[in-house]
Structure formats: structure tokens, C-alpha cells
């Protein structure tokens, strides 16, 4: 995951260079989709919103100022705004079906370890979904989207110190929720 986006690519995309725009898409769509999927836990919706984020990015590119905010932080702010928009329209998220969470797992291998891993992944997703809003956002951006501390802070409009504190608490809460999930299963 690149941490510093080539500003020349951004500038060329802003001027209408389709190759540069394509590169921005290619370099960012996978992580963006992963972030959106983790927040939505709906593959089709995450696909659609990923496309929408890039269309919004294209509209907003003329106003983007690299000196104000890192490019990826800017891109994820757009994504976050779309998510907020979606949540407000759709209301509370739906429960996550097991088959959705396990859809990315390999199907080969011994049956028992695979089942165990599916359960682990499901617990992790459920634990993530249980986090409070701000904690979930920081954890998703830092560890699913792979944003740096600075990028996460810029995305959320928080200080890096605040993000440090939130990621600490988020990981601790996640660990606790995950452990409790295991105990309940047992």
C-alpha cells in the first residue's frame, strides 16, 4: 500500500489525463472497496459505492489542494461522506450473514480448520461491527484501508494524538469483544 500518492498523477488526472485517472483508480479501488465492504458488509453495495466515490472524486478534483490534505485522506473523506449519507438513508445496518463474511476465504484445505477459520473471521467482523462509531472508523481506516496515522487523522478531521488514542482503545475493545465472542461460543 503506497503511503504517498504521486502528486503528479493527481495533477495530471485533474487536467483530464485519462491514463492518470485510471492509475488513481487502479491504485486505490481495492483498499477502498475493502474499507467500504467492512463498513457495509454488503458486497454489491460496497461495489456500487466504490464506483460512486471515484465519480465524486472526479467532480471534486478541481478543488483538491495537496497542501491541505493527503490525497488518500481526501479520497476516504469522500468515501466516509457517502457512507454517512447511506447510513442516514438506510437506517440501521442489517445483520451480517455468515456466507458474506466467509466469501473471501479459500475453499481448499482440511474441512475442520477451514470451518474454524470461517468462525474466527465471522467473530472478528462481528466484533468490529460492535465497536462504537469513532473507534470503528479509526480501526477500519488504519487496519483495513491501510491508511497511515496522518492520513487517518486527516480523513476524520482529528489530531494524530486523538487517532492514536482511538486506535488503542479500538484495538483493545476489539480484542475484548472478540474474546467474549469466543467465550460465548464455548
Amino acid at each position: 500500500m503506497i503511503d504517498i500518492v504521486d502528486h503528479d498523477t493527481v495533477e495530471r488526472a485533474r487536467r483530464g489525463d485519462s491514463q492518470a485517472l485510471g492509475r488513481l483508480y487502479d491504485e486505490n479501488h481495492a483498499a477502498l472497496y475493502r474499507y467500504l465492504w467492512a463498513r457495509l458488509q454488503d458486497r454489491k453495495l460496497a461495489e456500487d459505492l466504490t464506483g460512486d466515490v471515484f465519480l465524486r472524486m472526479l467532480e471534486a478534483l478541481p478543488r483538491y489542494r495537496p497542501s491541505d490534505v493527503p490525497f488518500r485522506a481526501w479520497l476516504y473523506r469522500i468515501a466516509r461522506n457517502l457512507l454517512v449519507d447511506h447510513y442516514r438513508k438506510a437506517g440501521i445496518r442489517q445483520a451480517v450473514p455468515l456466507q458474506e463474511t466467509s466469501a473471501g476465504l479459500p475453499t481448499a484445505g482440511a474441512p475442520e480448520p477451514l470451518v474454524e477459520r470461517i468462525l474466527t473471521v465471522e467473530r472478528m467482523h462481528q466484533a468490529l461491527a460492535c465497536l462504537d462509531g469513532a473507534l470503528q472508523e479509526v480501526v477500519s481506516l488504519r487496519f483495513l484501508a491501510g491508511l497511515s496515522l496522518r492520513e487517518t487523522a486527516a480523513t476524520l478531521g482529528k489530531t494524530q494524538a486523538a487517532v492514536k488514542a482511538l486506535q488503542h482503545r479500538g484495538l483493545a475493545a476489539l480484542r475484548l469483544a472478540f474474546s467474549e465472542g469466543l467465550m460465548n461460543d464455548e
Binding site: D26, R43, E47, G51, L55, G104, L105, M124, F143
Partner: peptide, 27 residues
């Protein structure tokens, strides 16, 4: 563990359409 957490991949065809739509919008 979070960094390695698997997720369902997006449909390849959807990605291709999406990319094309973005480039068309730019034009």
C-alpha cells in the same frame, strides 16, 4: 489479524464497468 482479514472480492466485471464509467465521465 485485521490487516489480514479476508473479504469477499468484488466482481471483476463490475470493476471493469466501474473503471470505464469513470473514464467516460472524465471525457
Amino acid at each position: 489479524a485485521l490487516r489480514d482479514l479476508p473479504h469477499p472480492p468484488p466482481a471483476a466485471a463490475a470493476l471493469a464497468r466501474q473503471r470505464q464509467r469513470l473514464l467516460s465521465a472524465q471525457k
